[in-house]
Structures are given as C-alpha cells and as structure tokens.
Design a binder for these strands. Structure first.
Length: 953
RNA sequence: GCGAGGGUGGCUGAGCUAGGCCAAAGGCGGCGGGCUUAAGACCCGCUCUCGAAGGAGUUCAGGGGUUCGAAUCCCCUCCCUCGCACCA
C-alpha cells in the first residue's frame, strides 16, 4: 500500500485521544519537563503562520518523552481585551469587510453567525472550529484537560491575587496618560478601532508661550531648541480663533484647539471668538530673547493641528524659509492688514545652530540643494526631512544658549525643553500629525486619562529581571542581550483598559487588566487548572493563593487544598522552555521574566526561552484580512500532517523565518512518500530476519558507524531546539549514507537485512518527534511497538568505527578520480589498473605525518625535506622525493593527530583491493590492483600514499 | 537615529561562533539518459570557466588588513529585513 497520510493519521489521532496519551500528571520521578507556548488569541482563525509556534515545542515535548521525562505541554485561550469585542461589534453591524473575512476567508456557515454575536461565543467558535481542530490535526501532544480562557472566573481570581500582590509591593502606580480618545463615543479607543490614521502616532509638542498684549500665543513645535530663531508667526486669517482662559491664563488659540486642550485636562473658558485676520499684524514677544515679531497671515496654517498658531524659523525650516520668501514677495498685499511691507521685507532668518556642510542659513542651502521651486513642491519634504535629521544629530547650538551652547541638539533637546518649561516659557500639548477617525465616524483626539502603570523602570525590579536573564537559556544565544536591552529601556507600562474582557483591577473595578499584563505568570495556572475546578470560587482568595505559591508558613491557617495544589505546581515548575515569537521579546517575554523574578523564588524562574521567526506564504507575510493565508486544515488535507510538520520544522531553524512555497512543500511530501515506500518494502521483504545480529562485513560496520554519528548529531541538535539540523541529519543526510551503502553492499545478505532493519528502527525513533504519524505507524509495523513508546536512541560507542569510515572515504576518492578521468577523456575503460604507492613513499609519509603532528597540522616543507634527505636511499631519488613531500604535505595539512593516526593504520592494499571490485562492477571492466614496484607501467610512478595511480585502457 | 539580524553560484539555502578536507551540502529550476503507449511520478548523471588523465583558472555585496593560507577573523563602505511601546 502506498503512502496514504489521511488514513494513518486519522487512526493515530483517535488512538491518542482515546488513551489520553499526552495527559501528564505528577509522578515520583524527578524528571518533569514543562514546555509552553503563548496561548492563542482566538479573534480569528488559526492560520499556518501560527502553526510552527505550536509545532516546535511539540517536537521538544515528544523528544523529552522519549528521553523518559514526564512532559507537560498544555494550551489555553487568551481572550482578554478589546479585539474580540471589536470583532463582534463589527459583525453585529454586518460591516462588509468583516463579513467578507468571516464568511469567505474563514468560511463560517451562515447559520452559525448568530452564535458569534457574543464575545465568548465568538471566541468559542474559533477555539473549537479552528484552533483545537488545527492543533489536533497537526498531532500536537497537548494535555487537553488543562485548557481554560482568561475570562474564566477562577483565572480572574488568580490574576487578582497577582495584582494585589504587586500592588502591595508598590509596583503599580496611578497617573495621567495620553491615549487615543474618540470624541463621539467618549471613550478611549485602540488602533483596531480606527478607520483612518491607524498608523498615526500622537506626538508631544512643545508649546512656546509667546506673549502678546492681551494674552499669550502658544505655538507648537517639535524642535523647541529653535526658539531663538523665530522671526514671525502665522495664522489663518479665514479661520476662527478664540481668546480663552486656560488654567487661569489668557491664551489665543484656534477654536479647534479648545476641545483638545480640555481633553488634556486643561480648564478652558472661551472669552471671545473672532476671525484669524484680527490677529494679523499684532506684535508678540519671544519669551526667551524678548525680541518682538509680527503675526502674518498664511493659508497653509492648519488650525486642526495643535494650537493653530504657527511659529516661523526660516533659518532652519525649509518650509518656513520658502514661506518667508513668498511673504516678502507679496508684502505689498499686507497693507490691507495695516502691515508696513518694508517691515516684512526686513525680516531675515536668524540662525541658532551650526552644522557642517551647510552655510549660515542651512534652510536656504537645503532648499537650493533640493531645487525646491515653491511651497507645494514635493522636494520640500525631502529637504525638510534631511535637514531636520542632520541638525538633530550634528547641529551645535550657538553660544547664546548659555549652558547648552556648543552642544549637539540630540544630547540637549530634552534638558533644554525642561529648562525653559521650569521658567514658564514653554508648555506642552499632544496631538496627531494627521487626521484620525474612529470606526464609529467620530473624531479621535489625544486625551489624558487616569491609568495604572506597572513600574518596569523600578530599579530593584529591573535588577531582578536582569538576574533572570542571566540564568536563562536564551535560544538563540544572542537574544539574551535583547532582553537586557529591553529591561533597560522599558519605562512604565499602562496595564489597564477602560473596557474589554478579562479581570477587573481589584481595587479599582472600573478598569480591566490588559492582555499583556494578565499573561505574565499564567503558565503556573496550567499546573493547577484541573484542581481548581473542584474548589468553590469564593474560597480562591488571597490567602489561598499565598498558601499555594508561598507555602504553609506564608499564612496563618493554610488551606489544605491549596497545599495539595502547591505540590502539583512545584512538580512542574519552573517552565523549562517557553517557545514564542521573536517579536514578543520587547514586551511579553520580558514581562514574563519581570513577573516571575518578582513573584517567585529563583528556582521557579524561567529556565529557557526559544524565540521563533515568522512564517511567509510564497514569500509574503500571511494576513487573514487580505486573504493571503493558508489554514492548517487545508494544508493537512492536501499533504497530510506529517508533511506540514516536516516542512515547518525542516525548512528553517525555529528562529529563522520560513517560507511556505508550494513547490518546496511538494518536494517534502515526495521525500516522505519515498521514505514510506522504501520502509514498507523493507519491512515486508525482511519480515523473517532473525533479531540476532549476524556476522557483519566492513560496509555494514560502516553504515552502523554513520548511524552513531547521526544519533549524536540529532540529539545534540534537539537539545538546542535546532529542529532543522536534527531532522536534516536523521532524514536527508542519512539517505546519502544509505545510497552509498546500496552502492557498496550486497543487500541480499542476512547481515544487510538485519542492518537495514536496525537502521530503520533507529531512524524512526529519531524522526518520531517530527513526523509522529508516519514514524509510529512504520515502527509498529516493523517491530510491533510504536516509536514513541520506545526510548530515544543512544549512541553505541562500540559501533563507532572511524577506521572504516576513513577507508570508505579513500574508496570514494578513488571512485571520484576514476570517474573524473573517464569523464575528461570520454573513454569507457575495459581495463583499469590501480597502482598502490611503494613502501618508500609510505616511509616519507610517516616522516611528513610526524612533522604534521608536531606542528599541529602545518608542516614546514623545508624541515621535512631535511629529515627525509638524511636517508641516503631517499636522497638518491632526488626530485621525485621533493615532489612527493609537497604532495603529502597537502594530504596531511589540517588533519588532527587522531586523523593522522587513522591514516597510518591503514593498509592500502586491502583497501584498494576492495575498491577494485567496486570499480570492476561499475564500469564492467577488468580491474587489477598491484604495487607500484611490481609494475613496469610508467604510470605507476604517479602513485602517492592514499592516492593510487590509475591507468585506463 | 537606536537596537537586532542579514548580504553565498539561475532561485532557495547550508557553511561562517573552533580559518585549510570549499568550486562551496541539500532542495527547486534547467539539461541529458533510463522507465513508460504517453504525461506525471520514480531512478541515474550533468549544471562557474577551460581542459582528450585524475588538472588549472576565477568566485562567496564592495574595499582594505591579519595569515603560509579566509566565504570563514579584524576594519571601513554600500545595501536589505525586523523591532522602537500602550497594538495583540
């Protein structure tokens, strides 16, 4: 029967489910292994991009089981936060885009849409219909008894304990914080809720408070250091402005700014409203220089941005420079505003910094260099971008800036801002650089909201987190520094939301703990989830979990049930390996380290983290909304789960990106089919082979020796999560050994049959973690037992035989040489003569080899010659010896002492007699192998040790 | 800009953390042959250049250096990908 994945896979899935094969419970042994993955977020279907994240830990779990461990590999569902709620809202509104994804991409039947109209109904659908079936389809060895969702009551009790504990330890702090806020719905919104401006980030503008007669005129800038370069201001004469009392001071701002300021916790009373033109011509005073300047009219002023009053720094802003040129040109028009044109023409750019490569007025140079033609020219943007960058990183402030004079902007901007803020010259406000619209159609602004923060910048806490990194097995190794870097860089993290699924903040229940903050120590929850189900909700209080996690002495009257669960927790903890995405290093994985470092003792801290690259589909990243996705179910149906697994695990190491290319996947599938067919054939044809090891020949011993190397390599690789290296060695690389074996060995011998069966059994056990369906099925057919029920293969040192491996290499080299000659000459030889190097040449080799050992593989030709020539018999041979030494130096160069010892042991005649048989068979030629000395063929002289001379005829 | 990772033969992708066994694995594609009524699948061979004797030449982003010897080590330049937060 040929390879039929669907049939055998179904059968093994059933068997695993029926027998609870992967359910793990504490035993007495001290060999527990606990691996976890991030619990999925079922706000949509699982696609193949997710599949490897779950498959890699599955391989490790299966591997450790074969090594004899109790292995726990659990899964749960993360439903915290707003994405699911948002998705349900969009479904209820029957938004076309959402409906398209649900019905076309995810293929949800019409009659089931209704059950998706509640958040948990929505989540449940994807959990059951996509994630669970996908995971079962892939053959993941999950203990399903432990699943839960983060919206479960008992989980909330656990999170409540966590946050009460952190709160008590002073690691949470309340503060005001800018957030995206929908002015229509009057609540904060997430990026997912946005219709337009999803990419927009709000910025903190510095407001420079220029003084006018009747009020201050705050103007927004991202470059506060340019304050000394302001030459004038602009307003939109057509727009509406207001004079308002803002926190007790009189301000002039655009009317549009009033709401923004209010949202940012300002008290704003509008005193009067007027057209922008009233402001034109007024004189304002620079709070830093005390210089006066004019307010000019300009159409380009956007009153929707910041305060709607703009300052102009023509020396350093190409935009302002060009605008000023225009203003001067049309200065005569300004008389309508009562402005003296001469005064406008007299405005000159005021430089405030020096920068190499630019003249006194950098903006002018930038404008000229980019060939900017006017205000609407796209080149203006490039000029601005380049100049801003250069000035920020290279510009040095002029001496008028006092303590900041001579400094690079990059180094002092923050200090300078703070300096003037303290003196009342600067203020601040947040705003977007573009328009942002909510899905509800409402305008989104930046608002200050009360928020609770986790204090990840706390020194003592960071210190503990660094210690956790130190003892962590970070895979790949270079990720360790990324964790350290993240720890140093993290500030405070807002850990709550105003709405969403999840756990309420225990002491302030208008807030919900957000997803990245309720998922930091939940791995512990897997160990107790089944046990907690039997305990009444109300009993799961602070004391209960204190007893559970901190032991009987932590509370006055410890709950017995908590102490029992404590044993289970301690049996599995710590997590040996967490497998996650490399994009999560900068938040989730580092939070994971922080919370463990704070809440648990060192011996419960994470032992290892393996991060993974992303998955591509035909070279492009997958996304459900674009439809460029492949669901695991589809792939499994097409190729079988083993092919899917093998591709995911073998095409790249876990931390590298992989690319699902149909062509490659098909080739993987063919590889597995070929393997299956050969294995099945072998199993049938050798069924009556006795179990006892027969007398082996050299080539049998060679294959078994290669097998040992393969076992060693696969084992070492899996210990480091190198699934590609491991599977490559056990599968593809060994196929090459087998093909040499088939070429060299008589397969009809009982010994060959025994060897091939032994090899197959070993390889199936090595492959079982990768392709469990195929490997278990074949092994069961081979011996009656499945591969996963048998131990992981161990290296059998007595089967390692470097001597024979070296000899086979020499035979291979000879075959290559013969083939080479045949190829170049285009002859089909009838006779082949092999001449093995004479004894004296072997003596020279000994001398060269001795030198090589002394010089660690880098023999000095001169010294060797001196030695060799001390023998009179050799000296007579003159140039022949010289050439030989040169050749032999190449042979030994770089070889280790052990290698050389092997070569010295080899009897060339025996080896090449064997080689002669192979050559004879392959070329259907008469092959003779004689010593160089015994031949009168002048070709024979070309023989050197380990490289016989060859004559084709 | 900061942090991380890369640039290898038509493509993909090993090797580069321990420099010589590297003209450089494997796969895909291409070419030739076998099998087949035929296609597919499968099997064998070739796939940098030159060569009628196992050889030689030029390659591993570009430039420089260390070394008897570098795809592999060091320096510089250019280019690409990812992350930079309140999104999960």
């Amino acid at each position: 029967m040929s390879y039929d994945p669907a049939a055998i896979e179904e059968q093994w899935r059933d068997r695993w489910a029926e027998t609870g094969r992967y359910e793990a419970d504490p035993a007495d042994a001290d060999d527990a292994t606990f691996v976890t993955v991030p619990y999925p977020y079922p706000s949509g279907a699982m696609h193949l991009g997710h599949a490897r994240t779950y498959t890699v830990p599955d391989v490790y779990a299966r591997y450790r089981r074969q090594r004899g461990d109790d292995v726990l590999f659990p899964i749960a569902w993360h439903v915290t936060g707003t994405p699911i709620i948002g998705a349900v809202e969009r479904l209820k509104k029957r938004e076309p885009e959402q409906m398209r994804v649900l019905t076309e991409v995810f293929d949800i039947p019409e009659d089931r849409l209704e059950e998706l109209e509640t958040p948990m109904g929505f989540a449940r659908y994807f959990i059951e219909e996509h994630y669970k079936s996908g995971m079962e389809g892939l053959g993941l060895s999950i203990d399903w008894r432990r699943e839960f969702t983060t919206n479960d009551d008992r989980y909330s009790k656990f999170i409540t304990w966590q946050y009460e504990t952190l709160y008590e330890r002073g690691l949470l702090e309340k503060g005001l914080h800018p957030v995206n806020y929908c002015t229509n719905e009057q609540q904060p919104v997430t990026t997912h809720d946005l219709l337009e401006g999803e990419e927009a980030e709000f910025q903190e503008y510095t407001l420079i408070t220029f003084a006018g007669e009747d009020a201050v005129y705050p103007m927004a800038t991202l470059r506060p250091e340019t304050v000394r370069g302001v030459t004038n201001a602009y307003v939109d004469p057509e727009a509406t402005y207001v004079r308002a009392e803002v926190d007790g001071d009189a301000w002039i701002v655009a009317e549009a700014a009033v709401e923004k300021l209010r949202l940012q916790e300002r008290t704003v009373d509008v005193l009067e409203t007027f057209q922008g033109e009233t402001l034109v011509g007024r004189r304002l005073e620079n709070p830093v220089t005390a210089d006066e300047f004019l307010v000019l009219p300009a159409e380009f002023v956007d009153v929707e941005n910041a305060t709607g009053v703009v300052m102009s720094v023509p020396a350093h802003s190409p935009d302002d420079y060009v605008a000023l040129q225009d203003a001067k040109e049309h200065a005569d028009d300004l008389t309508t505003y009562g402005i003296d044109p001469a005064e406008v023409r007299a405005i000159e750019p005021v430089p405030i910094l020096d920068i190499e490569g630019y003249g006194e007025i950098p903006a002018r140079d930038a404008v000229e260099e980019h060939g900017v033609t006017g205000q609407g020219d796209p080149a203006l943007e490039d000029a601005t971008q380049e100049l801003y960058n250069r000035e920020f990183h290279e510009g040095r402030l002029h001496d008028e800036y006092g303590e900041f004079g001579g400094e690079i902007i990059e180094d002092v901007r923050d200090d300078l801002k703070e300096h003037y803020r303290e003196r009342g010259a600067f203020d601040a406000m947040y705003d977007f650089a573009e328009e942002v619209i909510c899905r509800c159609g409402g305008d989104v602004e930046v608002a200050y909201q009360d928020t609770w923060f986790l204090r990840y910048n706390d020194e003592a806490w960071s210190e503990k987190a660094h210690r956790a990194v130190e003892r962590l097995d970070a895979i790949p190794e270079n990720t360790a520094e990324q964790y350290d870097h993240t720890i140093d860089w993290l500030e405070e993290w807002p850990c709550i939301r105003n709405y969403g699924l999840g756990t309420r903040l225990p002491w302030d229940d208008e807030f919900v703990i957000e997803p990245l903050s309720d998922s930091t120590i939940y791995m512990a929850y897997y160990t107790i989830a089944p046990g907690l189900r039997d305990i009444p909700l109300d009993d799961l209080d602070r004391e209960f979990f204190d007893a559970l996690f901190y032991g009987p002495d932590a509370v006055d009257d410890p709950d017995e049930r908590a102490l029992e669960l404590r044993e289970e927790w301690q049996y599995w903890y710590p997590v040996n390996y967490r497998c996650s995405g490399n994009d999560l290093i900068a938040n989730h994985l580092t939070f994971y380290l922080y919370h463990h470092a704070e809440l648990f003792e060192e011996d419960e801290w994470p032992e290892g983290i393996t991060v993974m690259g992303m998955g591509l589909l035909e070279g492009k990243s997958m996304s459900s909304s674009s439809g460029h996705v492949l669901m695991p179910g589809e792939a499994i149906e097409e190729y079988g789960a083993d092919t899917v697994r093998f591709f995911l695990l073998n095409s790249a190491e876990p931390w590298q990106d992989y690319d699902w290319r149909e062509e490659q996947v098909e080739s993987t599938h063919r590889g597995l089919s070929r393997f299956w067919n050969r294995a099945e054939e072998l199993i049938e044809e050798t069924a009556d082979t006795p179990d006892d090891r027969p007398e082996l020949t050299d080539i049998d011993r060679w294959l078994l020796s290669k097998l040992q190397a393969t076992v060693r390599e696969a084992t070492d690789a899996l210990d480091r999560f190198e699934t590609r290296t491991a599977s490559q060695a056990a599968f593809y690389r060994f196929e090459e050994h087998l093909s040499w074996y088939r070429r060299r060995a008589d397969l009809d011998r009982p010994a060959a049959k025994w060897v091939l069966r032994h090899v197959l059994s070993t390889r199936l056990r090595l492959l079982a973690p990768f392709v469990p369906f195929l490997a278990n099925e074949l092994h069961e057919r081979l011996t009656g037992e499945s591969a996963e029920d048998l131990p992981w293969p161990e290296v059998e040192p007595e089967l390692e035989n470097p001597q024979i491996e070296t000899e086979e290499e020499l035979i291979g080299d000879l075959l290559d040489d013969v083939a080479d000659i045949v190829d170049v000459t285009g002859t089909d030889p009838d006779e082949v003569s092999l001449y093995v190097a004479a004894d004296w040449k072997r003596d020279v080799f000994e001398t060269v080899a001795t030198h090589a050992v002394e010089t660690e593989g880098a023999p000095n030709a001169g010294q060797v010659m001196g030695d060799v020539m001390s023998d009179p018999a050799l000296r007579e041979r003159g140039n022949a010896v010289n050439d030989l030494v040169t050749d032999l130096a190449d042979v030994v160069r770089g070889r280790s002492e052990d290698d050389l010892a092997l070569l010295r042991e080899i009897d060339e005649r025996t080896v090449y007699d064997r080689a002669a048989e192979v050559v004879a068979a392959e070329y259907d030629a008469d092959v003779t192998c004689v010593d160089e000395d015994a031949s009168d063929d002048d070709k024979a002289e070309a023989a050197i040790p380990f490289r016989p001379a060859i004559r084709l005829a």
